[in-house]
Design a protein around this nucleic acid. Structure first.
Lengths: 340, 340
DNA sequence: CTGAAAGCGCTTACAG
DNA sequence: CTGAAAGCGCTTACAG
């Protein structure tokens, strides 16, 4: 590799100081610099194919214009869709994104965050995993700007952007009940994460509000890193007992993906034999014979808002912003009213 | 934010030089350093919650342990799956990944690569877009280590890892023809990218080899950034003419996703009325009523190999590695033989 | 209008 | 076994 050209090289060629070159190339003190000298400097910079060394600049300015993104798994469509939105929003402000997957493991998240901080990211966007409260509190103590996405901890006063899960599920449940479904099952996660539990609460409250006695066989709580087989099994149990459910609410697109496959395997008609609602849109739902009713998360808003809050927080680290965004219920054929 | 602790802080507290602290914390010259002093240094580093500043180290060592990943769109499952594999492989070697999406636009890719290089990434993993030959040749001239993924330019002697598209499509075509299909349509891309055109070549060669005269209405060539509506329209044309095709080969999972939806909308039975093969697996194909025959790309191998080649290339930039990996044809119900 | 100089936080060849 | 010192490529307060 031929040696990279530095400010010094340009300075020498033009016959000025590196300070001057720096000022010109950063468009600073423009009115005070000789136009001809400035022009010459730009020309030489171009000729020598000058690339500012952002590392050196960062060391001096203590800013890297890089944000760290910690997702559960970048190959999950929810994460990668948000990653794309975050990338675009960050780019508008000349920020670049370093990413890593935590696999829902606090230990891995910890190591990842540490690596990102060693690289002096200006701030972090985190999909936090269960049990990471202590880590996050520590980050907060160190004054590192960060915003949580999708999940949060009510006991921590941190920035976050999440879905109003209670409201979203409650809305979906009311819709199912209004459409005549009575034996409604739910496949969700067994987790200590507050806002995921809000999904369960939305489910239970909706039953109660409509005076439908809850049966515990209707609720399937699976681990966050549940295998596809376990999802299949849970759905199978909901649908094949002596008193099968007449509707299922899936709490994530991955749960729905495998759940719908099992419904196919059981040759059940949707919605005649079982109605279906899912949280999270997925283009692939359209491959299912019956279009699926789902709760649309405002991904664009979530990603943009989270990024904006982070960049604000990097500039002046004082306010805390917490956003619970509303989900939209998109009604399709999979929840057609029963008496149609 | 409280001031971060530096090597100097530790050195002062312990009462030694920063050099010594650096040696100890990097486990260098271990045998020559007083064990007690070393122990003390480590203790103090811990107490002060020392984080090595990777930026400063990078400036000195000229290595960032960061690789840049340029994909077409991180929210595309193909990209994000590979991103995950790359992340994991990079992490094994203590590398972190900076990413960006080019949207198939050379201009955007150029800007992205420039940004990544300013950040002094040690090397690049690139899903190149059409028309980026000149850029890549320039990178090569500058001696910057990079590996192309998924696509490549035969006129450039660069590292690359791609699918043997000709072989994969040829294999799929032979399977369709052997299964009794005769009027086989293909939905692929209209591009100058060499190895995507290999898909078209595989299609045409297979027809010729089996003495099936090609009709140009069977071949739909769409732009790389084609809209869902245009995909729908192309599939509609293949299926609703006076002489509709009896099988369709989709050259990407996005094409298949929208194509299958149109097949649903037309209420066509698969494979009785139209057989289907797709390149790229997608978990979501399983939502379709008939399981889809597809060409499985060796994603794990592709991602790992590309990353390994890059890291090798970063170490000593001399050999060029080019890999055309074989795809596996996974036969499902959507191509059941006609006389069954 | 321009330059000399200090310094960001490390690493490392050299000297002792 | 340990330290003084140079230097990576920038930025910027200060002086002129």
């Amino acid at each position: 590799m031929t040696k990279k050209t530095s400010l010094k090289d340009i300075a020498q060629t033009v016959g000025v100081s590196t300070a001057l070159v720096s000022y010109v190339l950063n468009n600073q003190k423009e009115n005070r610099i000789n136009k001809l000298v400035a022009k010459k400097i730009r020309e030489v910079a171009n000729e020598l194919n000058y690339r500012p060394n952002q590392i050196a600049r960062s060391l001096k300015t203590n800013k890297t214009y890089t944000i760290g993104l910690v997702v559960a798994d970048i190959s999950n469509p929810f994460s990668s869709s948000l990653a794309r939105i975050i990338e675009d929003e960050a780019d508008k402000h000349n920020y670049t994104v370093l990413f890593g997957s935590s696999d829902e493991k606090p230990g891995k998240a910890q190591k990842l965050i540490s690596t990102l901080l060693n690289r002096q990211v200006d701030g972090l966007l985190i999909f936090p995993s269960e049990g990471s409260e202590v880590q996050l509190a520590e980050l907060q103590k160190q004054g590192i700007p960060f915003v949580l996405i999708d999940r949060y901890f009510p006991e921590l006063k941190t920035n976050y952007v999440a879905l109003d899960n209670f409201g979203a599920i409650h809305k979906a449940m009311q819709h199912l009940i209004d459409s005549g479904y009575q034996r409604i099952g739910m496949v969700t996660f067994d987790t200590s994460l507050f806002n995921l539990n809000e999904r369960k609460r939305g489910y239970l409250e909706a039953l109660k509000g409509n005076k439908i006695p809850f049966r515990k066989t209707w609720l399937k709580e699976l681990k966050l890193d549940v295998s596809s087989n376990e999802i299949t099994k849970a759905v199978d149990e909901l649908l094949t007992g002596t008193k099968p459910v007449d509707a299922i609410l899936f709490a994530s697109n991955r749960l729905a993906l495998y759940g719908l496959q099992q419904i196919n395997r059981l040759h059940l008609r949707v919605p005649e034999q079982v109605a279906v609602v899912s949280i999270d849109q997925a283009e692939s739902y359209n491959l299912f014979h019956t279009p699926i009713t789902y709760i649309k998360q405002p991904l664009l808003e979530m990603g943009q808002l989270a990024t904006k809050i982070l960049l604000e927080s990097i500039k002046k680290n004082n306010t805390t912003t917490q956003a619970n965004l509303e989900g939209e219920l998109i009604i399709k054929e999979s929840t057609r009213p029963i008496d149609d």
